[in-house]
Design a protein around this nucleic acid. Structure first.
Lengths: 121, 121
DNA sequence: TTGGAAATGATAATCATTTCCATTTACTGA
DNA sequence: TCAGTAAATGGAAATGATTATCATTTCCAA
């Protein structure tokens, strides 16, 4: 955890929602921070590794980042406005575990996302 | 629906309906078809528009395509050797549907992958 | 202070995807 | 059948996000 990591966490907290690496870089630049794009990518990568931020994908495949609490959860994402709801996935945890055992896999993790159109859109 | 569209459907059927545009292009080329990359992208785009194929995303953001109407399934992927097992996800379907309804989302889809180390590795 | 490791950022490279445009192919009506 | 037109095609260049490279700077312990 170094200075850049902290700057990015601060911006993510301030903006609340999602942002891409490019956007985060622009925001910092606009605020007078001379941080380089490379450093932004590196910091985000390390924050993802440390499970401090979540990495999702926009519909066009661009990576977007978001601070997340430490409880394991999944996302319900609106395809139209990008609005996101964190949801519990107890059923998924069990399913993943069962399936993995059934096929002799160990050391398992999983990803699961639901996407649709939210009530506002 | 033109010739290219049909070629791509054929390849997707043959490969089990899960490949990126680049892979599909390579497969066709390898088989002696001189189809251009541009045409592959165009055909896939039109198949997606016509809801004949689904567009998903790999973890790195690359677009992957699969035939709709295939029985919907998920993947259990070995992180070490890349081996993949197709699995049923009845529990997931229900979970996704329930969660979406609960939050007023409509027109929902979902992705779910399990990854771990297989018994051989 | 100083030597080395970690961090930084500009630049160039990479890779999927799109755009452009000239050429070919398919299709129409006479 | 045939000219004329629209659609399809594919190579090359453009685009845009992300990653690799590498020289320089900052940190920090001895």
């Amino acid at each position: 955890m170094n200075k850049s990591d902290i700057k990015l966490i601060a911006v993510l907290e301030r903006t609340g929602g999602f942002a891409s690496a490019q956007e985060l870089h622009q925001i910092l630049r606009r605020e007078g921070d001379g941080i380089g794009l490379t450093t932004v990518y590196r910091a985000l990568q390390s924050l993802v590794d440390d499970k401090i931020v979540d990495l999702l994908r926009r519909e066009d495949g661009e990576a977007i980042y978001r601070l997340c609490g430490d409880t394991h959860h999944h996302h319900l994402v609106c395809k139209s406005c990008g609005d996101t709801v964190e949801i519990e996935g107890g059923a998924i945890e069990k399913w993943a575990k069962t399936m993995a055992e059934e096929h002799g896999f160990r050391d398992v993790g999983h990803t699961a996302e639901i996407f649709g159109i939210c009530s506002k859109c």
